[in-house]
Amino acid sequence: MSVGFPRPTDDSTLLVKEHAVSLVFLLQIKNSIMLGAQYSLIAIGFTLFFGALNVVVFCQGAFYILATFIGAGLLSLLIGAGHLGPIVFGCVAFAIFFLSMCLTGLVGVLVERTTIKPFRNAPLVMPILSTIGVGIVIEQLLKLFYPQGSNPQVFPEIFPLTGVMLGDLFISVSELVILAITIVTLVAIWFFIKKTKIGSHVVAISQDFEAAALMGINVDRAIMVTFFIGACLAAIAGFMNGIYYTVFRYDMGAMAGIKGFSASVVGGLGSVYGAVLGGFLMAFTETFAAAYIPGGSAIRDVFSFGILLLFLILRPSGIIGEKALDKV
């Protein structure tokens, strides 16, 4: 397949001439990859949280949509500020991306300090409940206090509508950016875990909490970092969600969170590679079920939950599971 260089095509003139089944198939694959990128990032967050604290943090979806709101709000301010040159615009836009990521990360840390830390020695079901509560609170606050929060919002368009042609398949600039961000993020995560000191702390905690503390690792700090990063990942996914779908509403976070969670369970709670694998697996299953099974689009969610259920029951450690059930 040849890769053409960017032509100033408007997507409207790209009415597909040959409606080859293979092209549609490629489109579905592209869709799945886009979706999978989002699920994977959210899933990695879940995995990190679970690895560090054995906690399922249900407000990951809320972080996701929070970032979309922050990004949209700041970007519309930027656009409203008047015409800036493309370079300046690009830099500021990137800065906004970074800012929304960090803000969400801080919210993540705040949530950990206030509603998860107190339950460190409590039955594991308490943080599940409290994070569900936090998720509800964040979403409702967005709905109530963001201007017209209960209505659907528009994420400002910041990329040109052009793209590249991969054979017959059109890939837009925004899609390329999403792919690029995903790859960079995954590499950064890998680097963080394998090469940095604090990363090794995080891994140590997930392997054995007490031993890590005994070794002199500042457990509290490592946990804070974990939450910051996990929330950042959700934020990145949220920002990408805005770029890709353009329309969002305050209640979209919950579903994304649950799907991301399913992805991490399928891949194996505790394994970052598993989270990525799970994310793409879920996305592919959903997309192809919706496309090729009659009536599938209505029950695509059933597929997601069905897979979750199956794995929870039959193989709770997931595909690349690392944590075994403890035997006594």
Binding site: G133, V134, V137
Partner: peptide, 9 residues
């Protein structure tokens, strides 16, 4: 949501 969190805490 607030009731849930408060009670738990």
């Amino acid at each position: 949501g607030l009731v849930l969190i408060s009670m738990l805490l």
